[in-house]
């Protein structure tokens, strides 16, 4: 068991499409499971507090948009050997970052006040505060590999994970691109 490579995934500000596409690897997941141990992420019932100290590979879906995301990426960077930006939101900010054109205040006002039927809007409590701007993951922490796509096709995901497992530098440009 311990000889297996420890893989984690994490879901920040994204639509979960990348995690769906990961599942589209279908039977290749079985192939992968012989070499990796999935230790943390949305597929299993384990809290982020229990993110292991010695993760080998972590796939990050989504951009860094609020204080919670920021807190989490700093921790996974410390606890993971290789970090892969997983999908366009992580790589470029993508749709999540479109609010950067307007800033969080204007964006919230438009979404929750102007477009709302409610007369009075309550101050939000107990939810993480939005950052001033949405960041691609590599703008916040060092990222080892990039896997663009919206979502990245499962072939590209398999290719990149396989290359990293084999100790090679992946170049997925023949399998995916921004917006794919």
């Amino acid at each position: 068991m311990s000889s297996k490579v420890k893989l984690a995934t994490i879901w920040l500000d994204g639509c979960s499409g990348c995690h769906m596409s990961f599942l589209d690897m279908d039977e290749r997941l079985i192939e992968l499971s012989e070499r990796i141990e999935y230790v943390s992420g949305p597929y299993i019932d384990r809290k982020f507090q229990d993110y292991p100290e010695d993760v080998d590979i972590c796939l990050v879906e989504g951009s860094v948009s609020n204080e919670e995301d920021l807190h989490k990426v700093c921790i996974i960077r410390e606890r993971s050997k290789k970090i892969i930006s997983f999908g366009d939101c992580a790589v470029t900010g993508n749709v999540s970052a479109m609010r950067n054109i307007f800033g969080p205040k204007e964006c919230l006002a438009h979404s929750y006040e102007e477009l709302s039927d409610e007369d009075s809007i309550k101050e939000p409590i107990d939810i993480p505060k939005l950052l001033e701007s949405v960041h691609a993951v590599h703008e916040v922490i060092d990222v080892d590999y990039f896997l663009p796509g919206c979502p990245p096709p499962s072939d590209a995901i398999f290719y990149v994970i396989n290359e990293v497992l084999e100790g090679r530098e992946p170049n997925p440009s023949h399998l995916t691109r921004f917006g794919k």
């Binding site: 204080e67 920021l70 990426v73 700093c74 950052l131 001033e132 916040v140 922490i141 060092d142």
Partner: peptide, 11 residues
């Protein structure tokens, strides 16, 4: 810094 963006400015 722990990360590349200034947290003080962001938070």
């Amino acid at each position: 810094s722990r990360c590349h963006i200034s947290i003080s400015k962001e938070a």
